[in-house]
Measured scan of single mutants.
Amino acid sequence: MAAGGDHGSPDSYRSPLASRYASPEMCFVFSDRYKFRTWRQLWLWLAEAEQTLGLPITDEQIQEMKSNLENIDFKMAAEEEKRLRHDVMAHVHTFGHCCPKAAGIIHLGATSCYVGDNTDLIILRNALDLLLPKLARVISRLADFAKERASLPTLGFTHFQPAQLTTVGKRCCLWIQDLCMDLQNLKRVRDDLRFRGVKGTTGTQASFLQLFEGDDHKVEQLDKMVTEKAGFKRAFIITGQTYTRKVDIEVLSVLASLGASVHKICTDIRLLANLKEMEEPFEKQQIGSSAMPYKRNPMRSERCCSLARHLMTLVMDPLQTASVQWFERTLDDSANRRICLAEAFLTADTILNTLQNISEGLVVYPKVIERRIRQELPFMATENIIMAMVKAGGSRQDCHEKIRVLSQQAASVVKQEGGDNDLIERIQVDAYFSPIHSQLDHLLDPSSFTGRASQQVQRFLEEEVYPLLKPYESVMKVKAELCL
C-alpha cells in the first residue's frame, strides 16, 4: 500500500493539533497551500530580480507567473513527485505547466533550498508574528487579574506546605514575570531571523556568478533584492546548502521555554482548584465526569500541561538535527523538520489560546482563602504575639514557653481530632496574655502579614508589564474561544 493518505478522510490519521486544537490561522501558515504558494512567490521574486539585473526574462513571463501564483494543481504535483521522487522539481514542473512561456526560467540558477529553506524562514517569521500578540493578550488578562487582587491576602506555599502570606495578585505576578520573559525572547528570536537568500547549491553562489558572467556586484544585488522582497532586513552571508540548523534550535528553545512557563502556571491553577481557592472557567453544560456528576475538573489547565510537556520535548529534535548536518548538509534534517517545526508552533498556539481562555474567566473564592488563612495564621502570628507581650512588660522566655504549650495543644486538636485551630481562643482565655487581649485582632490582621506584596504588584505592572504590552494595544480586544 502506498504511503500517505487522504487526510480529510475519517479513515486516515490526522494530527489532533490540526484537527482538534490549533487555530485556523496557525494551521494555514503550515498548510501545503501556504507552503507551495510561497515557493511560487519566491520563484517570481527571483525572476523579477534577475530581470532587473539584466537576464533575458520578459515582462510577459513575469506576468504569467504572477497570474498563476494561486493556480496550484495539487493532484498534478503529487503525481509528479511520485514520478520524480523530488518535491521541488515536482512543483517546478507543475508551475511550468500553467506558465508555459515562463517554464524555462522558473528556478533559474537556484537549488531546492532556495524555495525550501527560504519558505521555512518566512513561515517561522509569520508563525512567530501570530504567537506574539496571543502571548501579549494572556499577559494582559493576567495583569488585569493581578491588579484587581493585588491586596487580597492568601496563604503562600513553599514545598506545598503553608508559608508566609502573600497576595493573590502577587502570586499571579510570578506567572506574568515568566511570560514577559517569554514574550521578550519570542520577539528577540523573531527579529534575529535572517533570510537564507540566493546562495546556490553549497552556499557559494557559483551558479549565479556564472549567470551574471562573473559580476560579483550583481550577485550581491540579486541576494539583497530577493531578501528585501521577502520582507527581511538581512540575509546570511555564510550558508551551506541550507541555512544553519542552529536557527531551528533557537526558535524551538524559546517555544519550549514558553511551554515550561505555561505548565507551571496551569499546575498552580490545578492545585488551587483542589484547594477550592480558584477555578478555571466551567461552562453551564460542561460535564466533569461521566460517573461523578459533582466533579469540576480543571480540564483546560490539564490540557495545557499535557501539550506543554510535548512542546518542551520537541527542542531535542533540532538539537540532534543540527549535530548531524555533515559538511554542507545531509538530508537527516528533512523529514524531522517537516514534523517538529509545525508541531512546535501548533502546540504553542494551542496552549496560548487555551491559557487566554482560562485567564479571561478565572474565578476566585475569597471566603475559602480566608478560612485557610484562619487555619494557619495563628501559628504564624506567634512571633508577633511574643513581641507584643514583651512590649507590655512580659518575659520573652516565659511567653515563648506559654505559646509553645498552647500551640501544641491547638495542633493536637487540628491533627488528632480534625478540629479547627483554636490557638487564639486559648490565648484569649489565658490570664497571662490579658495585657494584649485587646491587640489580638490587630495582630491577626492578614494584611499585616503580606509585606509589600501589593506595592510590588503595582510597581511591576507599571514599570515592566504595561510598557512591554504597549506595541500590542491594537490587538488586545480579541477574545479566545474554545470549541473543545
Rank of each mutant, 00 (worst) to 15 (best):
A2I: 06
A3Q: 13
G4N: 07
G4K: 10
H7C: 11
Y13T: 11
R14Y: 15
R14S: 12
R14E: 14
A18L: 11
S19P: 00
S19L: 15
R20T: 14
R20S: 10
S23K: 00
P24G: 13
E25V: 12
C27V: 11
V29R: 10
F30P: 05
R33C: 12
Y34C: 11
F36C: 10
R37M: 05
R37P: 11
R37K: 11
W39T: 11
W43A: 06
L46Y: 06
L46I: 02
E48A: 03
A49R: 02
A49G: 04
E50N: 10
T52E: 10
G54R: 05
L55S: 06
P56E: 02
T58R: 08
E60G: 08
Q61M: 09
Q61E: 06
L69Y: 00
E70V: 13
D73A: 09
D73T: 15
D73L: 03
F74W: 10
A77L: 12
A78D: 02
E79F: 14
E79T: 00
R83K: 02
R85D: 02
D87Y: 09
V88W: 02
M89T: 01
V92I: 05
V92N: 10
F95V: 13
G96E: 06
H97E: 11
H97L: 04
P100L: 06
K101V: 05
K101C: 15
A102T: 12
A103F: 08
G104C: 04
G104Q: 04
I105E: 04
T111A: 07
C113S: 10
Y114P: 04
D117N: 06
D117S: 07
T119R: 05
T119L: 01
T119M: 00
D120W: 11
I122K: 10
I123T: 11
L124V: 12
R125G: 14
L128G: 04
L132S: 09
L132W: 04
L135V: 12
A136M: 15
A136I: 05
R137S: 10
K147M: 06
K147H: 06
K147S: 05
E148A: 01
E148W: 04
R149W: 08
R149K: 05
R149H: 01
A150S: 02
T154V: 02
L155I: 03
L155Y: 09
G156C: 05
F157H: 02
F160L: 01
F160H: 10
Q161L: 10
T167E: 01
V168W: 03
V168I: 06
G169F: 02
K170C: 05
K170I: 02
R171E: 15
C172N: 00
C173Y: 00
L174I: 05
I176F: 02
Q177C: 03
Q177E: 08
L179M: 14
L179K: 06
M181Y: 03
M181K: 13
Q184W: 12
N185R: 08
L186G: 04
R190W: 05
D191M: 06
D192R: 10
L193H: 07
L193A: 06
R194W: 10
R196V: 04
G197L: 08
G197T: 00
V198Q: 00
V198N: 13
G200Q: 14
T201H: 14
T204Y: 10
Q205P: 02
S207D: 01
E213M: 13
D216Q: 02
Q221S: 01
L222Y: 04
L222F: 02
D223K: 00
V226I: 03
V226Q: 01
T227I: 06
K229R: 06
A230Y: 00
G231M: 07
F232I: 01
K233I: 03
A235M: 07
F236E: 04
G240F: 03
G240E: 06
Q241C: 04
Q241T: 00
Y243L: 08
K246N: 09
D248L: 14
D248E: 10
D248R: 09
E250V: 03
V254A: 06
A256C: 04
A256G: 09
K264L: 14
T267E: 07
R270G: 02
L271P: 04
L271F: 12
L272W: 09
L275G: 07
L275P: 10
L275D: 03
K276P: 00
E277R: 03
E277Q: 04
E280T: 11
E280G: 07
E283D: 13
K284N: 13
Q285R: 04
I287F: 02
S289E: 15
A291H: 11
M292E: 10
M292C: 07
M292Q: 11
P293S: 06
P293A: 12
N297M: 15
N297G: 15
P298S: 14
E302V: 14
C305K: 01
L307H: 14
R309M: 13
R309S: 08
L311G: 07
V315P: 06
V315Q: 06
V315T: 09
D317V: 07
P318N: 03
L319H: 14
A322S: 07
S323M: 04
S323Q: 12
Q325K: 06
E328D: 09
T330H: 13
L331R: 12
S334G: 11
N336I: 10
R337D: 01
R338T: 05
I339E: 06
C340M: 13
C340I: 07
L341P: 14
T347W: 14
L352D: 13
N353C: 06
Q356K: 07
Q356C: 07
I358E: 12
E360W: 14
G361H: 14
G361A: 14
Y365S: 01
R372A: 05
L377C: 09
F379A: 06
E383Q: 00
E383D: 10
I386Q: 05
M389Y: 02
A392R: 06
G394L: 14
S395T: 07
Q397V: 08
H400Y: 04
E401M: 01
K402S: 04
K402Q: 12
K402V: 09
I403N: 13
R404F: 11
L406H: 12
L406I: 12
S407T: 11
Q409N: 10
Q409W: 06
Q409G: 06
A410G: 08
V414L: 07
K415R: 12
Q416R: 12
Q416H: 12
Q416C: 07
G418A: 11
D420S: 11
I424F: 11
E425D: 03
R426E: 03
R426I: 14
I427N: 01
I427C: 14
Q428P: 00
S434P: 05
P435C: 15
I436L: 06
S438G: 06
Q439V: 11
D445N: 05
F449E: 07
F449L: 05
T450R: 14
G451I: 11
R452Q: 08
S454I: 08
Q456E: 02
Q456C: 10
R459H: 14
R459Y: 14
P471R: 11
Y472L: 15
M476G: 15
K477S: 12
K477C: 15
V478D: 06
L482Q: 15
L482M: 11
L482F: 15
